[in-house]
Amino acid sequence: MLTILGGLILLAVGAGFVGALSGLGGGVFIVPALVIVAHVPMYAAVGASLISVVATSAGASVAFVRDGWTNLRVAMLLECATVTGAVAGAYMAGHVSPWILELLFALVMLQSAYFTIHKSDTEYLPKSDALSEYLRLDGEVPDDEAKPIHYGVRNVPGGSALMLVAGITSGLLGIGSGALKVIAMDYIMHLPLKVSSATSNFMIGVTAGAGALVFLARGAVPAAIAGPVALGVTVGALAGSRVLPHANVRALRTLFVVILVLIAIEMGWRALSGI
């Protein structure tokens, strides 16, 4: 018994550690770890993962809020879309076949791998468009000399549309959808990359929380799995965030991409062969 419980915790520690180090979050790794290694049904893995995403994001976002990198107005506006998507996704997760979830998960893994390779900063937008200006979404970031640099925001409808998709994938697949959120804010709305990452971190907990509440209220989060996983992922994520400043992330990036592609192949194979 202790072997199973200990094994689950260790698996979750590993997923949380790699998730924090890669910047993709624990959910991306804990769902396949539970499905492939622990032979847990996809639906139970999604419920357990959503809870662990809530646990890790709560700690991760605190520093960003404290240091002023999080754009709270952008977060609150876009959370309208992600929460709508997450509740819909979590509801749908209880009504679609596991192989569809596994296939979608494989596709999201490939998207995350692509994002890990192509992550790049966009230039600061000097002025917001009319809607963003009305909603006062612009902000300031400190540069190296601690002088604030102003940035503008644009294309709120485009960003919100992608955020709706990010919410649906979060609720359906038990992940934070951080990669999609950063793409929406960085590429579509032209926020600086660090502001996008910090704001995404802030939002992930709320998005995953919306999905987790549906699962919990439905009684679909098995305590025997979710309890040890939540504790393990939190410990792993804490350790990962401590190691991160000293790690050569650029060198590790190739390793993360290989892991993501292997997970995509395995999950895709499971989906198509009906294992």
């Binding site: 309208c80 929460v83 709508t84 997450a86 509740v87 979590a90 509801y91 709320v206 929380g209 919306a210 999905g211 509440l213 549906v214 699962f215 919990l216 209220a217 439905r218 679909a220």
Partner: peptide, 11 residues
């Protein structure tokens, strides 16, 4: 409201 609706929907 969305978060609360999620609880109701789950029940």
């Amino acid at each position: 409201a969305g978060l609360v609706f999620g609880i109701v929907l789950g029940r």
